[in-house]
Design a binder for these strands. Structure first.
Lengths: 342, 342
DNA sequence: ACTATTCTTGAGAGCGCTTCCAAGAAATGC
DNA sequence: GCATTTCTTGGAAGCGCTCTCAAGAATAGT
């Protein structure tokens, strides 16, 4: 059994209160007493019992990361691993912990909510939900559970962190425009995901900036899968695009495979740009030009924001939304390198 | 503020003890009283305060997942996401939670150990460490923290779950042997990782089964990275292999790129087999023949084993090691399909 | 009908910690 | 030098829950 405060106190010849003060760095303890207490602590290998402490402080230092059902299947996509890595890094720094809350069905979501989020173990929550209208958000808002949204929430007053999907897509498409392309198609993502909406908006803005009217036959929705990308490319081909902007690398790879089957060369016949910069993007031939997102930073920022929220609800501005910039990674699939590079 | 047991008791006109019994499904409560208590619970939306409960039961239902330093960088590899997915699935089923413990440096590891693993928040730990001699294992054994090892621990008496790296590698190499190859090289993994050791052992066993002496010039160690794979392939080429077994897909992809640069065709000039079946394996051209591991099951099994350990240390056999089978996925890079398929 | 057994219930201690309060010690002001 | 303020310390309550214990109610046994 681990030693308790009481035993440390006895060993140091002081009261429980004094030991507690030493542990918690309260100023009003005589230096020599403080030293004696530390000695006793070291001597018996005392570690504060976090559970007992939490019972009175009402803080556990545990942050939940909620990844809803629809996304669990996408878990092989490196988004979540990178997000978690960034989040844990900041957590380690700030002496907090991350608890993983994934579920595979909506019933699990409800059960999880009641059992875990309302049981006092979790100080606050990071919600990484890509879908437009997640029910969890309303529940948490109702119950006053502090949370930060990763992505773009419906209600803009909800604290959130996001990458600049609009800007990233716009940059990608403008890159193609600058290369001379005028018939640029897009394989958009699922219409109910905000990231997909925003990337489509970026596509629109780029065309608008070049005064090119939007041609509906050049816009097809995929589902962020490789097969979806192949299918979308097939439907797009009759419209005769000279370039394609895919809202995700996975779909771009699907498109690439379809084009290869169709006997078309990338980038010579059709230029291709993706989004995400997943590892596979640089494994395919030709390597994919794509938009890289600072995902670990996003995770870290989410934690930072949440901890800020927990510490000072007073200092919290009514609206808090942070958007991180993206970066265009130019490789072979867009044709820019063969045009200028050699 | 959430209601407490006391308030529910008052509402139902019974004592705190009785409400506690109802909550915990103790048998000796009159049915009508039980119903009255449930009514009160629903009425005021009572949720038990898990922290308070844990203080007395000495159980939190939280399991830690430790992924040591050396691996954090490999986090883009889909191993951990899949492991976590399998683990959370079982956790949800068994009403447990997963806490993520990653660190970026050995100092963080020590700090984490003292602060998190010994503070009473965690019932048990899943250690996913690929390196041969992790210091954490000794610490946890010393302090009596229940844990399950994912991979192959040095000390075989430690409860562990693993995939059959030896068997998987052996099957892969025997597949090449059956295709007629006799000069088979291997790009092995880092010598200090058990998975790499075991895959190399599988390579050896396959050759032995075919009575082919081991040629040291056909064995080169890589570091589980793409660049490492390229470098290894370069060093291997002078030895004149007709086939290569890479201990990871990432390295196989590196090898593939080098071969392409060298003007060699896969599988016509050199056959290639990988290990892991990462998504990129089927994105490259030609698609990689590789060994698929049941990683989500591995994660689930780790949780199951750990929970078993926690419930009944009595029933625990002195040695508990579970090894899951792997599966050879035949695609184009090994040449089997062009030989038989058409 | 009376005793022996089993059910049902409430009182109360206690899990390990923080924190309020009050008392005594030390420091300060005039 | 004495009253007043500030430091330092210990006592004790209490966070919300579980669980033992004992008492009273209900049931069974003869």
């Amino acid at each position: 059994m681990n030693p308790t405060l009481e035993q440390v106190a006895q060993l140091a010849g002081v009261s429980r209160s004094t030991v507690s003060r030493v542990i918690n760095n309260h100023p009003n303890v005589r230096p020599e007493v403080r030293e004696r207490v530390w000695q006793a602590i070291r001597e018996c290998g005392y570690r504060p019992h976090a559970v007992a402490r939490s019972l009175v402080t009402r803080r556990t230092g545990i942050l939940g990361v909620v990844i809803p059902e629809s996304l669990t299947t996408l878990f092989t996509d490196p988004f979540f691993p990178l997000l978690l890595r960034g989040a844990t890094e900041v957590c380690n720094l700030r002496k907090h912990q991350l608890m993983l809350l994934l579920f595979n069905d909506p019933a699990g979501e409800e059960e999880m909510y009641q059992r875990v989020l309302r049981n006092g173990y979790i100080d606050g929550v990071i919600v990484a939900s890509a879908t437009v209208n997640d029910p969890l958000v309303n529940l948490m808002a109702r119950d006053g559970i502090p949370f930060v949204f990763v992505g773009r929430p419906l209600d803009p007053s909800i604290p959130s962190v996001d990458v600049d999907n609009v800007g990233g897509a716009r940059t990608a498409v403008e890159h193609l425009l600058r290369l001379g392309h005028r018939r640029i198609a897009t394989i958009a993502g699922p219409a109910n995901m905000t990231s997909a909406q925003d990337r489509l908006e970026g596509y629109r803005l780029a065309l608008e900036a070049y005064r090119i009217p939007l041609d509906e036959s050049l816009v097809v929705h995929g589902d962020y899968t490789e097969d979806g990308g192949m299918l979308a490319m097939q439907r797009l081909l009759p419209a005769g695009p000279t370039a394609v902007f895919a809202a995700s690398d996975i779909m771009a790879i699907g498109a690439l495979k379809f084009l290869r089957q169709a006997g078309l060369r990338v980038p010579e016949d059709i230029a291709l740009v993706g989004f995400d910069d997943i590892p596979a993007a640089s494994a395919v031939e030709p390597r994919l030009t794509t938009v890289r997102q600072p995902i670990p930073q996003l995770g870290g920022l989410a934690v930072e924001t949440l901890i800020g929220l927990l510490q000072g609800p007073r200092a919290r501005p009514s609206m808090q939304r942070i958007v991180l910039p993206t970066e265009l990674v130019v490789r072979e699939s867009c044709g820019a390198l063969s045009a200028f590079g050699r």
